[in-house]
Simulated scan of single mutants.
Amino acid sequence: MTPELTALTLAALLQVAQFALFAVPANRELGVGYTSSARDRPPSRQMSPVTARLQRAMNNHFEGLILFTIAVLVVTLSSQSTATTQFAAWAYLAARIAYVPAYAFGWRPWRSVIWSVGFFATLTMLIAALL
C-alpha cells in the first residue's frame, strides 16, 4: 500500500472516531428517542456547544475527505507518488487530527490555520499529479 493510501485509510478511521466522539454525547443530550427517530421535527433539546462543534468538525471532515480521496486516487492510479505527495498526505492527516480539538474547543484563529494546512496539502497532491 502506498503511503498516500495508508494516510487515506487512517483518515477514514479518523472519520469513524469523529462519529463516535459526536454520537455518544449527542445521544445523551438529545435522547435516544430523538436520535433513533426519522428526525422529522427539530429536537426538543439542544446539544451543548462542544457537541455541536464536534458535529460540525465531523461534517467538515466528510467534505474534506472527498477531495483528499480524489487526490490520493489520482496520485496512486497515475503512479505519481513522490516524497512531496507522501508528505502532503501525512500533513493532511495530521491537520485533520489537530482540527478535531481545535474545533471542539474553539481555538481561533488556529482552527482555520489547521484547516488550511489540510486543504493546501490536498491541493499540493493534485497539482503534483499534474506536473
Score class of each variant (00 low, 15 high):
Glu4Met: 14
Glu4Tyr: 14
Leu8Thr: 11
Thr9Gln: 10
Gln15Phe: 14
Gln18Phe: 00
Leu21Cys: 12
Leu21His: 05
Phe22Tyr: 01
Ala23Trp: 05
Ala26Pro: 06
Asn27Arg: 15
Leu30Asp: 00
Leu30Pro: 07
Leu30Trp: 02
Gly31Ser: 03
Gly33Pro: 01
Gly33Lys: 02
Tyr34Trp: 13
Tyr34Lys: 07
Thr35Pro: 03
Thr35Ser: 01
Ser36Leu: 10
Ser36Glu: 10
Ser37Pro: 08
Pro42Ile: 10
Ser44His: 13
Arg45Tyr: 02
Arg45His: 03
Thr51His: 06
Arg53Ser: 14
Arg56Phe: 05
Ala57Trp: 01
Ala57Phe: 03
Met58Pro: 05
Phe68Arg: 11
Thr69Glu: 12
Ala71Phe: 04
Ala71Gly: 07
Val72Ser: 06
Leu73Pro: 11
Val74His: 06
Val74Thr: 12
Leu77Gly: 09
Gln80Asn: 12
Thr84Lys: 10
Ala89Trp: 06
Trp90Met: 08
Arg96Leu: 11
Tyr99Val: 04
Val100Gln: 08
Ala102Asp: 04
Trp107Arg: 02
Pro109His: 04
Pro109Ile: 06
Arg111Pro: 00
Arg111Phe: 01
Ile114Met: 01
Trp115Ala: 06
Val117Thr: 01
Gly118Cys: 06
Gly118Glu: 04
Gly118Phe: 03
Phe119Asp: 01
Phe120Asn: 13
Leu123Pro: 11
Thr124His: 03
Met125Tyr: 05
Met125Pro: 05
Ala128Phe: 11
Leu130Arg: 15
Leu130Lys: 14
